[in-house]
Structures are given as C-alpha cells and as structure tokens.
C-alpha cells in the first residue's frame, strides 16, 4: 500500500492505495468518479483520458502511485459553478456524441488540443484525435464541436 496525495478537480485528496492500481481505477473505484471510462486494455481507445498537470494522458496507463503531488482534472471537473465548459457546450450543440461512452475522453483530449492550438484546422483536429476511438459518430460532429468550441473560446 502507498499513501498518495494529489489534487483532483481542485480538491486535495490523500488516500492509502495498493501500489499497482491505475489512475483510472483509482478515479472510478476509490473516488467514484465514474465519468472516466475504460474501453480497452491496450491504451488505444482513449475513453479514459484525463488531464495531469494540464496535459492529457490515458489514465488507464498511469499508476496512481506515480502521480504523487499531481493536479488532475477529470470530466467531472470541467464544468465550473454549474456551467459547462465551452467544449461541453459545443459537443451538445453539434451533436458530437451519441452513446456518450467515448465522450469524456474525447472532450478531455479536445480541450488539451485547444491549449496549444487556438484555431486548429479539420486535419489538425482529426490528427490530434488519433488516440480517441468513437464508434457512433463517424467523428464528423466531433470535429465540428472542436471548431465550434475554438471559435467560442476565442471570442
């Protein structure tokens, strides 16, 4: 067992955890933050993407013990004061989600993109989302959502 202290969605969390648990399992099973999803075992589907110290990572491929002192944002921490993040709003507006399973990871990934590229092209968005698999949407409305969010966040 290891004691880890980290900040999750702005709240300090200290827990005693088994050495081998992944961040995704820590979030889902220990903290009941079930918005982070598990869709594969090979780090490819991206349903589990969260931000660690501001950067998107796959939480199924990180050990919770490895993240001592990190600041973590999950899908549950994206809305502020009950108001959804512009990326969440944009996904709603453009129908960028259907079953919703890949959505949390997709959104966390897309939010990270806009940190480094304020005005990404379609190609840049599609390339960036290489690590997020969606089976429902054919991606077109996801691309539209990211563009919509980019334009809202600029203004």
């Amino acid at each position: 067992m290891k004691k880890v202290s980290l900040e999750i969605n702005g709240k300090k969390v200290t827990k005693e955890i088994p050495d081998h648990i992944t961040l995704s399992s820590f979030l889902r099973d220990t903290l009941n933050l079930t918005g982070t999803h598990i869709g594969c075992d090979t780090s490819q589907c991206g349903a589990c993407v969260v931000h660690v110290d501001g950067k998107s990572i796959k939480s199924c491929t990180a050990l919770a013990a490895d993240l001592e002192g990190s600041k973590i944002t999950t899908i549950e921490g994206l809305a502020k004061n009950g108001k959804m993040h512009p990326m969440q709003e944009a996904f709603k507006k453009t129908h960028g989600l259907q079953c919703g399973f890949c959505t949390p990871g997709m959104i966390m990934s897309a939010v990270d993109l806009l940190k480094s590229k304020k005005n990404p092209s379609d190609t840049e968005i599609r390339d960036w989302l290489e690590g997020n698999i969606c089976r429902c949407t054919g991606y077109q409305n996801i691309v539209a959502a990211v563009k919509e969010a980019a334009s809202k966040m600029k203004s």
Partner: peptide
C-alpha cells in the same frame, strides 16, 4: 518505469509481471 507506455499495458494484459517497479521519472 518511465512513461510506462509498454510496461503498464503488458502488466495489465498479464504478459509481464514484476516484483518491483522502480519509477525513474
């Protein structure tokens, strides 16, 4: 353990197991 991009999935899939994991990050 550095990034763990191969080590962690290998352990998850049961392809590898270790007594000690040493983080060098």
């Amino acid at each position: 353990l550095a990034g763990g991009m191969t080590t962690i999935p290998s352990m998850k899939l049961g392809l590898a197991s270790y007594k000690d994991i040493i983080n060098i990050k």
